[in-house]
Design a binder for these strands. Sequence first.
DNA 1: ACAACATGAGAAA
DNA 2: TTCTCCTGTTGTC
Length: 278
Amino acid sequence: MPEGHSIHRVARVHRRWLVGRRFTADSPQGRGELAHGVSGRTLLNVDAHGKHLFHTFEGDVRLHIHLGLFGRIRHFRNDGPVPSTACRLRLASDGATLHLSGPSACELLSLEDEAALRARLGEDPLRVDASPDRAYARLTRGRMPLAQALLDQGRIAGVGNIVRAEALFVAKLPPLLPACELERDAFDGLWSAMRALLQDGVRDGLIVTPGAPPLPSPGRKRAERFCVYSRAGLPCPRCGAKVTGQVLAARTLYFCAACQGVDRVRRSRRKPVFAPAP
DNA sequence: ACAACATGAGAAA
DNA sequence: TTCTCCTGTTGTC
């Protein structure tokens, strides 16, 4: 569910359908104070930055939601079904109800705390105020592998494991290149690949990488379709070589070692620190 | 039925 | 680096 595109899509839906409504809130999971803080207030605004959602209610009440790995928001036009015991927050108004379950964060924030949180977030390719210059400066700080830097939300916000793999593939970049060796024109290709994937994802509600092959096993229900993500051992749709899946900093990184090469990408050629896998 | 795994991230060591 | 939290889906038996 949750990479940046999902969050921005939720924000869009909520702006369109929920802003202006007055909600009653409850928490079947037993977070009474949280529900009490929101209940009876009108929703004024919804904003997304990276994977974070910010709802502003009347009376200076700010709700911060992060879905984490497991979080989900279900929407209903009517009252909706009986919420499960795992439902952390239910917001109900006339003709629109939502159930939030499994978030890693669902809290009320003061103005200062929200500002501090937003200040820690990097450039979000989905935001109009995003600065590619700043994104490049932050992303290329240090020698950490490019793929690892891409998941650091303080550098670039909203990119998750799927988008990093697919964008690096589309831009034909080597994931293990030290971030500081990424040339500016190579970054520009990566930035536009990420933005295109995320923007299409907001529009369609799921990530579909152009050029992705049909699903390997027809029975699978996976909604999103990829070139390399989750395709370890399967043929690369561009060159046919086997896709690599390897764990990097506790996350599985997928890429095609054969066609995501190092050419034209280095900033300094002095030290051959990185060599593509054989 | 049951186990493994997942699009995340913070804290601890 | 390893643990920890949270829930739902996928695959194996």
